[in-house]
Structures are given as structure tokens and as C-alpha cells.
Design a protein around this nucleic acid. Structure first.
Length: 891
RNA sequence: GGGCGGCUAGCUCAGCUGGUCAGAGCGCCUGGUUUACACCCAGGAGGUCGGGGGUUCGAUCCCCUCGCCGCCCACCA
């Protein structure tokens, strides 16, 4: 006998091990059964190897697992490929922090080799956490194929891609402005910048003209950059400054002569119309400098201190200290012309949180513009589709305005760039040092000393290859052949640019096909107030605590049911509790079946059932199966969850089980046997349909409910997905049970409103029933009497005195509640019901009396309204009659 | 400045291609030892679907506009 509740804690680890040991997570299982099995593949968005599971991972991986399990049950060869990302900057940051916290030497003092060793040690220590946690979520990944972005195979793929792109002219080294993070002392890409709005000031500075004839005023939010100014620009058409173009100003403090140039970049509307040009420290100014052949003066060190290019009194100063000093100095010189408060955005490093600087350095760039073209075309053609579709707008917008991708990072944790330099700076880009050596030998005609590039690649460079590098590329593997392109990628919108777009570019370039046919963008999980979860806010919900408290299935069901939200999921604990209760409900339905000896019957065919409730539930199973199948096929996870919830609770438990009780405790052995088999069958269907969302509970019940029946052919994880057959929905049975439900509901409602004690049984008569209703009444007498707690159920020519009446189709129901009836209450009840029908009638009448409606509305709608009117009118007439009888009685 | 979401019952949200769409869960109220389940059962209260305008025979659902809330991109004269 089943316990009263499901105990997830004791079941989950055992079942997970059982699944994994069975080989069910591997696609080979399906291929053994059917070598032609359709492949279905998903690559996991690789979490940070040293990370731990947060609620976003829980959502993302739950949805992937739902898909994997669904397709697996449909007999497809499912590969869900797991793995982790080395997450260069993030991981390096963590280890650096640890070193600092422990009072150890920093990475620079420690040296590259020792530091990288530390990171590997940290990876070894914490690296398994996230994958262990994925297992606790029930993730049915194929762990035998687990990959890591820094493992040997993936590193080889990275080198191959780098070298190929270089040799194809799609990757190059260039000296230009990059976004520099002074905290990590590395270049970062534009995507790693976070714009923060801050209160600031414009300082207006006067630059004196060389000839002493006056001054020109410029404004800046970064006064310290004036030391790097090499021009002042004015608009060529700006009349105010025509006479100054070509003249020079003496740049204060730096004491340099710099030209006044005419450039359309200067906006006469802004500020004074004259703008200082600092080509080495501003992206726009860089362009202006290029156009006018201006020198670039870099005034910053990698730590963002002023360097030796500036007057000695400022050299070595931190940029923000220097800012104040410059302002003071300009003021002292009498050249500060004003300060205007402003609110403006300042770029910060998304990881470091410090203000980043445009900085002139040598970096490696990928020609993203060229690679983006096929990636744009593929989505335009529909080779890859976003779900929901509107994300393609975001994708297109970015892809069409894409900038060169800076892929080098001045970090140590990552893929070292496969570039070697000869003594004269000649560069050799090869996949291995040996190959580079050979190339150098060919070039120099002798062996020379080579120095490998110090930098590593952006983490996203290796992530971009993930859908094919993990399948064995550049080797031509069977997996690559079978599983590329992958079927669906499940990820969140915040990495569409970082990751999805770049996978598209690399996949199309190297595999000549999209990396995935569909991208499902899942929502972001927030706390119940809608705030982004963060450690600093202290509102982080640990998914594993929810698993501990409510069970994995409850969390999974919650996330699945709420996944329809456009952008955010506001997670409230109460929802998880509610869905835990749902699991318990199903558990108890199974318990009921067990107590009533409802066991699966070998060879049972639901098509042959005779009992009306069995025909009815068979149709409900068919409809639910169709709804769930369609929803999961379309990634409409919330709809699947909703359909399952309603079926299990509101259909199977609330009505089928209750309607079956009289049969199960009755004398009709044939009906009883059929109902037992049908109940067991229905439960089996429910377990199957629910398995992708709630794998543990359903697998456990699949096992437990087989105790007295024929053995299960397999674990539920590998059981075949239900397929409804034509004819399972029986409209007659459906209408009949709907009628029974309506009747029972009416009686219950009246009893509650009239305060009839629950234990009291009351007689019910039907007046004016037609032949069909009489037949329904006969067939369902037992169940109606039980559910409506009737003393008797008969037909009569007229309603008895002291009865509460209600309309039911063509008939009138009269519930004799003589002992309990409260005339005033009954009058109120009837009046309220009459009023309800009256408002319906008025509403429908308005339509039917409207000439335009009658002329233009489709026939079906008109007919529907006529029917509705007729029904409401008969119902109202019955209740009015009842009301009249009541008044007569009261006289 | 450009773009994208959201605004429906006290709370969290469903309402797909305009005509039973005004719904669910939680919460609340009333009643309940009905042989699966109190993590339950039965019944009930509660919303002029953000405001205004328009299209239509008919709009929560389409269009315009305004108002909040949130996000993304661009912008540091």
C-alpha cells in the first residue's frame, strides 16, 4: 500500500541512479531499438565550471529536460549534451579574490604558470558542484559525452578555428581603440560593457589662441583627457568659428600647440559648438583624428593612471585624482569657464564594475561583419527560428550593426592565442608550436626563437563553437554527422548577442549549416516582487532549498507552468507549494486505484469499453494527450503544464474517481472489472504524459502501481508516449457526463446555500424530462445519488411543495429540503438566478434586435445567440414558476 | 534618441488567429470525520480587463494616443 504522501528525498537519488545506470540518457538506447530513430539533440548552455546552480539554471535545464524526456518517449534518439565553460574572466576574478582574501600574492607577483595552476586547482575543487546539482534537478543528460571548453578536444577546435579564420582573412591583429578594463587590465568586448547613468558635470575650459587673439571654449566630462588633446574641432559650416579654422590654440598645462580643425563631427547645437579632440581616448575622436592625421597621445597606463606623456606633476596619478587636479589647475590658470551639472551614462565593466576607458592597444579582431551575413540570411530564410518569434528582431538589429569582435584578452585563464612571433615581430599563426616553428623556419631560412602571444581568447570564442566542437569537430565523427545541426537550443535572452549570434556565425562558417534549428528563449526568473535576484539584495532563492522542501518535481512543475511569461518569472514559494500539492493529489489518486484493485490488464483496449464514464474519460485522455503533445512540440511548456494539471485534478480526481466509486463498490462485476482496468489505464496515461515535467513522482508510481499487475516493459523514462486513436472521443458520452456534472453541481450549490447539513440526504425529482434525459437518469442514478447526496431520484409531474428548484435543460429539478428550507433564502436565491438569466437575455436580445448584427454577423454566431436566448428564456421561465409557487405557499 | 516587454480579482498570472473570455492558483468567507488525499472536499464573495479615442454589427483581444513599471541598444560637448 502506498504511503499517504510521496517522499521525494528518499526516492529522487535512487531513481536518478537507476535511470543513469540503465543507459536511458544515451541516444544509443533508442538506436539499438530502431537504427533509423530520428535524432533529437540539445547542447546545454554550459554553466561556469566553478559556478553553482541558481534558479535561472533550474528553469533553463528543467525545460531542456522536459524536451529531452518528451522526445525520448517518442522513440527519438535523444542526445542532451552536458558540459561546462571555463568562463575566463569570471573564474579568474574569483580566484584572484580568493588569493587576495587569503592575503596571498597577486597573480602578477605569482607569475602566469603558478596562477593558472591555482585556477586549475580551484576548478578541481569546485568543478563538480554544478553538474552534481544538475543531477539533483533530474537532468537526463548523457554524462558520457560531457565536455569542458578547456579540454583537449575543444582546445584543438579553438586553435583550428583561429588559424582558419586568420588564413581566410577573417581574423586579424590591429592597433586601435578598445574598451579597456583597468581593474582586470584587459580589453573587453562592447557587450561586456554596462552603461550606468550617473550624476556628473561638464567642465568648460578655455583654450587660448596661439596668436593671443582670444580663446575657444570646449566642454568635457573627463577633464584629465585634455592632456591627450591633439586638436579642437568645429563644424565646417559654423559661422562663429569660420575665422579660426586652421589656427592653433595653446593647450594649457600640456603646453602644446594644437590645431583647430573643421569636422562635421562637431555639433554646433551642443555646448559651445567646439569640441576637444583626444584621439587616443575617445572613439569618436579617434575617427576625427584619423581624418585629419592627428597624432594619438596615449596618456594612461594599463591601470588607468596618467603615464609619462603628461607633465611630471601629474604622471603616476590615478585618473580620478588627476581629474580633480586638472580642474583645480585650470581654475588657478583662470581658464575654467563654468561647471554644468548633467546626468549622463558612463560605461563600466560588467564584471569589474569600474569605469572602463577607450585605450589604444594591439588586439585580435574577428571580422564579424562578414560572418554575420550568412547568419542573418539563415534566420531570414527560417533555417533557424526563434521561439517566441519576436526575438529575431533583437537578433537582426544587432547583427546588422555588428562591430568587429575583439577576441583577445589580457588574462591568463583561457585558450592561449596560437600566434608566435619571430625576433623581428613576424607572426606565425598555426595550430601547434611545431607548425609555427616550421613556418618560421621556412620564413627565416633557419630556426629562430619564437615567442607565443601572451593573450588568451574571449571565453565566448570557445562557446561559439560549442554545438560542433562538443560533437567531435574537427574530426568527422558519427555524432557530428548524426546530431548536427542540433534540434533546439534553450537559453535566455541576455545572451542572444554573446552566444546565440556567435554560434550562428561560427556554425554556418565551419559547418555550413545552422547550429540549431530552433532557439527557445526562456524568461528570466525574478523574486516575487519582480526584482532581479542578486546576492547583494539577499533575495536569491536557492533552487536546491526548494527541492529539499517540496521535492524536485514540485519545483520543475512550477517553473514549467510559469515559463510562458514573456520576460520575467516572479517566483513565489506559494506556487511551489501548490504544485507539490498537485503531486500529492496524483499520488493519492494512485493510492485510491491501488485500494480498489485497479491494476493494468494486459491487452486492455480502451476502445472497447461500455460504461459511459469510461467512454467519457477515454475521450478526456485523448484530448489531454493531444493538447500536451502539441504544447511540448511547440515549446508551449506552460500550456502543457496547465492541461496536465486540469486533467489530473479537475477531471480525473474530481469527477472520474468520484463517478467510479459507485461502480467499484457495486455488484455489477462486469462493469467493475472494466472500470478497474480503465482507471488503471487512465492513470498510466497520466503518468506518461506527466513524466517529462515530473519525472520522479511518475517513475515511482509507474513502479509501485505495477506491483499487482503485469510487469512494466521498461522504466517510465523509456516508455512509449501515448497516442490517442480516432474514435476515442465519444460525443454522446461527453454530453451525458456533462449533464450529470451540471446536475450534481446544481444540487450541491443549493444544499450549500440552503445550509442543508452535509449528512442529510434529500429527495430530488425531475419534472418535464424528455426521453433522452430519462435514459440518462436511469444510467446514472447511482452516481448522481451518491455525489449529490440524494435520498431518492425520481420523475414527477410537478415539483413537490417545499422544494428548491433549478433549471436543467428542458427539465426542472426540484430538491425537497422541507426541513431546512428557508423561504426568504430560497426566494432570494431564485430571484438572484432569475436576475442572472434576465441580464443574459437582455444582452443577447440587444444583439438579435440589432439590424446590423443580423445582417453582418456570420450565421453560426447568430444561431448561437438564438440558442442562448432560448435556453436562458426557458430557464428563467422555470425559475419564475418556482418563485410563483413559493409565493403561493407563503400565502 | 531607437527598440522591446508589461499594466486583467487582495497577490501571482492564463486568456492563441476579435462573437459563452471575464478565468486559474494562492489568499479570503461559509460548511465538512462523504472508506485516495486536510498537501483534502463542497459552496461562495471579489475585476467598468491602466486612461482616452478610433475601426467594427460586436474589442480584454486590432489601430492611434496618453500614463505609469521594467529591459535592451546607442550616446560621456
Amino acid at each position: 500500500m502506498l504511503e499517504k504522501t510521496f517522499d521525494p528525498a528518499s526516492v529522487e537519488p535512487r531513481l536518478y541512479d537507476q535511470w543513469e545506470a540503465s543507459g536511458a540518457f544515451r541516444p544509443e538506447r533508442a538506436l539499438e531499438r530502431d537504427p533509423a530513430a530520428k535524432p533529437f539533440s540539445i547542447v546545454i548552455p554550459p554553466p561556469n565550471v566553478t559556478g553553482s546552480l541558481h534558479i535561472g539554471h533550474a528553469l533553463n535545464n528543467t525545460l531542456q529536460d522536459v524536451l529531452a524526456r518528451f522526445h525520448r518517449m517518442r522513440g527519438e534518439a535523444v542526445l542532451w549534451l552536458p558540459g561546462t565553460d571555463h568562463a575566463g574572466i569570471a573564474t579568474q576574478m574569483v580566484v584572484e579574490r580568493q588569493l587576495a582574501a587569503a592575503g596571498n600574492a597577486g597573480r602578477r607577483e605569482m607569475g602566469r604558470e603558478a596562477f593558472v595552476e591555482k585556477v586549475w586547482a580551484w576548478k578541481a575543487e569546485s568543478g563538480g558542484t554544478i553538474t552534481r546539482q544538475l543531477r539533483r534537478l533530474g537532468a537526463s543528460c548523457d554524462w558520457s559525452r560531457e565536455r569542458f571548453t578547456l579540454d583537449e578536444g575543444l582546445s584543438a577546435a579553438v586553435r583550428k578555428v583561429f588559424v582558419s579564420l586568420y588564413k581566410q582573412g577573417l581574423l586579424y591583429r590591429d592597433k586601435r581603440l578598445v574598451i579597456w578594463d583597468p581593474q582586470f587590465q584587459t580589453a573587453i568586448s562592447d557587450l561586456e560593457v554596462e552603461q550606468r547613468e550617473v550624476d556628473g558635470q561638464y567642465w568648460r575650459f578655455a583654450y587660448p589662441l596661439e596668436d593671443g587673439s582670444g580663446e575657444i571654449v570646449v566642454a568635457t566630462t573627463r577633464p584629465e583627457t585634455m592632456l591627450g588633446d591633439t586638436a579642437v574641432a568645429v563644424h565646417p559650416d559654423d559661422e562663429r568659428y569660420q575665422h579660426l579654422i586652421g589656427k592653433k590654440v595653446r593647450l594649457p598645462i600640456a603646453d602644446r600647440l594644437i590645431p583647430i580643425v573643421a569636422d562635421a563631427y562637431a555639433d554646433p547645437e551642443k555646448g559651445s559648438g567646439a569640441v576637444k579632440i583626444t584621439p587616443a581616448h575617445d572613439f569618436n575622436d579617434f575617427q576625427v583624428g584619423k581624418r585629419h592625421g592627428l597624432p594619438l597621445i596615449n596618456i594612461l597606463t594599463p591601470e588607468a593612471k596618467l603615464n609619462d606623456e603628461v607633465p611630471a606633476e601629474f604622471a603616476g596619478m590615478d585618473r580620478f585624482v588627476a581629474r580633480k587636479a586638472i580642474i583645480q589647475h585650470m581654475d588657478d590658470l583662470g581658464l575654467l569657464r563654468g561647471i554644468d551639472p548633467t546626468r549622463h551614462v558612463v560605461p563600466h565593466g560588467d564584471r569589474s564594475g569600474v569605469v572602463v576607458e577607450p585605450y589604444l592597444t594591439d588586439q585580435w579582431y574577428v571580422d564579424a561583419k562578414t560572418l554575420a551575413q550568412p547568419a542573418i540570411a539563415a534566420v531570414e530564410r527560417g533555417d533557424m527560428v526563434f521561439e517566441p518569434k519576436n526575438w529575431e528582431r533583437t537578433y537582426f538589429e544587432w547583427m546588422r550593426n555588428i562591430e568587429p569582435w575583439c577576441v583577445s584578452r589580457q588574462l591568463w585563464w583561457g585558450h592561449r592565442i596560437p600566434a608566435w612571433y619571430g625576433p623581428d615581430g613576424e607572426v606565425f599563426i598555426e595550430e601547434t608550436e611545431e607548425a609555427a616553428r616550421a613556418a618560421a623556419r621556412a620564413h627565416f631560412g633557419r630556426d629562430v626563437e619564437l615567442r607565443q602571444d601572451e593573450d588568451v581568447l574571449d571565453t565566448w570564442f570557445s562557446s561559439a563553437l560549442w554545438p560542433f566542437s562538443t560533437l567531435g569537430w574537427p574530426q568527422k565523427t558519427a555524432d557530428l554527422e548524426r546530431f548536427y545541426p542540433t534540434s533546439t537550443l534553450v537559453t535566455s535572452f541576455d545572451i542572444i548577442f554573446f552566444w546565440v549570434a556567435r554560434m550562428m556565425m561560427m556554425g554556418l562558417h565551419f559547418m555550413d549549416d545552422v547550429p540549431f534549428k530552433r532557439v527557445f528563449i526562456n524568461a528570466l526568473v525574478r523574486d516575487e516582487k519582480g526584482q532581479k535576484m542578486s546576492k547583494s539584495k539577499g533575495n536569491v532563492i536557492d533552487p536546491l532549498e526548494l527541492v529539499d522542501e517540496y521535492g524536485c518535481d514540485a519545483l520543475r512543475f512550477t517553473l514549467t507552468a510559469m515559463s510562458g511569461q514573456a520576460r520575467d518569472i516572479k517566483l513565489a514559494k506559494g506556487r511551489v507549494e501548490g504544485y507539490r500539492n498537485f503531486g500529492t493529489k496524483l499520488w493519492n489518486a494512485a493510492r485510491f486505484c491501488q485500494m480498489n484493485e485497479c491494476v493494468s490488464v494486459a491487452g486492455f483496449d480502451p476502445a472497447g469499453v461500455e460504461q459511459v464514464i469510461n467512454k467519457w474519460i477515454r475521450g478526456e485522455v485523448a484530448k489531454t494527450t493531444e493538447a500536451v503533445t502539441r504544447a511540448l512540440t511547440d515549446c508551449a511548456f506552460d500550456e502543457a503544464a496547465g492541461a496536465l494539471y486540469r486533467f489530473v485534478w479537475n477531471v480525473f480526481c474530481d469527477w472520474y474517481v468520484e463517478l467510479a466509486k459507485p461502480i467499484l463498490s457495486g455488484e455489477d462485476e462486469v462493469a467493475k472489472a472494466e472500470t478497474r482496468a480503465m482507471a488503471a489505464w487512465t492513470l498510466d496515461q497520466a503518468l506518461k504524459l506527466l513524466h517529462p515535467v515530473s519525472p520522479f513522482l511518475t517513475e515511482e508510481l509507474w513502479d509501485k502501481t505495477a506491483e499487482f499487475g503485469p510487469p512494466r516493459g521498461s522504466l517510465l523514462i523509456e516508455a512509449p508516449w501515448p497516442e490517442p486513436r480516432a474514435g476515442w472521443v465519444d460525443p454522446e458520452a461527453e454530453a451525458e457526463i456533462d449533464w450529470v456534472i451540471a446536475l450534481v453541481s446544481e444540487v450541491r450549490s443549493i444544499r450549500a446555500e440552503m445550509n442543508v447539513p452535509p449528512s442529510a440526504r434529500t429527495p430530488l425529482v425531475l419534472v418535464g424530462a424528455d426521453a433522452r434525459t430519462r435514459a440518462r437518469l436511469e444510467r446514472n442514478r447511482d452516481r448522481i445519488s451518491t455525489l449529490a447526496r440524494l435520498q431518492s431520484l425520481e420523475e414527477a409531474a410537478s415539483p413537490p411543495a417545499g422544494s428548491a428548484q433549478f433549471a436543467l435543460g428542458e427539465a426542472t429539478g426540484a430538491l425537497t429540503i422541507a426541513g431546512f428550507i428557508d423561504l426568504a433564502a430560497e426566494r432570494a436565491r431564485l430571484s438572484k438566478a432569475v436576475a442572472g438569466f434576465e441580464s443574459d437575455i437582455a444582452h443577447v436580445r440587444r444583439k438579435l434586435d440589432n439590424v446590423a448584427f443580423m445582417a453582418k454577423a456570420p450565421e453560426a454566431v447568430v444561431a448561437e445567440n438564438r440558442e442562448k436566448l432560448a435556453e436562458a428564456e426557458t430557464a428563467k421561465a422555470k425559475l419564475e414558476a418556482a418563485l410563483a409557487r413559493l409565493e403561493a405557499m407563503a400565502q
